[in-house]
Design a protein around this nucleic acid. Structure first.
Lengths: 258, 258
DNA sequence: CAGTGGTCTAGACCACGCT
DNA sequence: GCGTGGTCTAGACCACTGA
């Protein structure tokens, strides 16, 4: 009886707006072009600025737009492919590794990492900071956790106090020290590696390294390096979710470029 | 001279709020517990509801909370690990494949997929819809694109009109038809597969399948199946970014559970 | 300095899930 | 019907960038 509800799922304004803008981006804008500012755009579409921003946020999340405070909103280039795992499994910092070793930090070791490392009680952990950039653009920031047991040659001089109940971070050092950690790590045989990928939001330090605001969406890649039946190292890498696409397998990244 | 700016990076309210809530979730709430409603929470923290919502959105993005319209906000369980690629590479729909084959749809073939398939001009494409659920919860929705050339035995009865300049979708069918497409596909030898992972937002149909609102964050996994030097099929799978963590490699998903 | 995006407010109404 | 989260408004001020 009642009137058959004819096509009335009132699509949210911001959703419709996003579609309209998306089409406009495809047909009327070139990569790098600057859009009108938010107040003008909102007025043009007859919506409040908050509503327009909801649409822009979606488009930025999808990598279609790039917004920068004090500058404006520009049309983003297609996401770049970033090789994360290829067939040959190697230690971080091996030859031809595009990551840049920055140094070793002295932060806490997150509980989740401690769980993966399953270190001997109170065993110290080296923390190496690395960064990945492409064409001058920051792409990813990584923290590599190496328990002292994986690099026995380094335990000579500076022994950190062993805290009960958890891994202790070793004192910070320069890039030279970080590289020596990697060098020692390479003496081990790499038996395999396991990875997980999940969505996260950038912490304050990652945000700075990635040239984004805190809370920006990132893809968190956690890698567990296995050697002799034990976890020799754990890497937590955060990739800018807006600008890059992770590639796995033997694909040349360009093959899947859009 | 000038007063050294002492610790004044005015942290946004929503960011601070997120931290406070996050700690509260760790210490004072159990998984599944319902939080006070947004209006009460906002009043309790002395902020506008919109500001509180910004903090809740972040926490939901990180998989800490689950919000459902008409119901409330609950504490989410830890993300579940979902195996995406293991060492042995197999066709979709092989034995022990946990995906459920739903049927074949008749939608358009996205331009990005056409580029990967590189089909003969106007070659028709089968589209198979599948879904993955764990413990009754929808986890992922997949569209598998199979060019007619990959399953020659099926081209007998219904030939779609070949449109110029692009791949044509074949008419829809039931789960039985979809399964026959998979069966035929298995006759090919799988030479390898390439994957990409990127952040996306759920389209209307995916949102329905995943029991989320349109625009919800999803992890889009694009897989290219290679056989005899050619792309035999392309799968585009969208995973709920809030509830799952993709696992690669030989890891048992539980090993990396948080 | 002017102009941009980022944050925040205090309201209003709507769509949905339950009971 | 009632309470929930989802959408939307019209303003205000702030933080940052670049001329």
């Amino acid at each position: 009886m009642g009137t058959t509800q004819l096509e009335t799922v009132p699509e949210p304004k911001y959703w419709h707006l996003k579609t309209v803008l998306s089409n406009a981006l495809d047909s009327e804008f070139a990569v790098g072009e600057i859009l009108p500012n938010e107040r003008d755009l909102a007025a043009r579409f007859g919506v409040a600025r908050a509503t327009l921003r909801q649409a822009l946020e979606q488009l930025e999340l999808e990598g279609r737009l790039q917004r920068r405070r004090g500058v404006g909103t520009t049309v983003a280039p297609p996401r770049m492919g970033v090789a994360v795992g290829d067939s040959r499994q190697v230690w971080p910092g091996a030859v031809a590794d595009p990551w840049q070793t920055l140094g070793s930090t002295s932060g806490d070791v997150p509980a989740a990492v401690v769980r993966l490392l399953a270190p001997a009680t109170g065993e110290a952990v080296y923390t190496v900071r690395r960064a990945l950039t492409t064409d001058g653009q920051p792409v990813a920031a990584e923290l590599l956790y190496v328990p002292a047991g994986s690099v026995p040659e380094l335990t000579g001089d500076e022994n950190a106090a062993t805290a009960p109940g958890g891994a202790t971070a070793l004192p910070a050092g320069g890039a030279a020290r970080a590289r020596s950690v990697l060098r020692e790590l390479h003496r081990l045989e790499l038996d395999g590696q396991e990875r997980t990928v999940e969505l996260g939001s950038a912490r304050a330090d990652d945000a700075r390294a990635l040239d984004r605001l805190p809370g920006a969406p990132v893809l968190v890649v956690t890698t567990r390096y296995l050697s002799a039946g034990r976890t020799a190292a754990v890497s937590v890498a955060t990739y800018r979710a807006d600008t890059c696409r992770l590639t796995f397998g033997d694909a040349a990244p360009d093959l899947l470029a859009s």
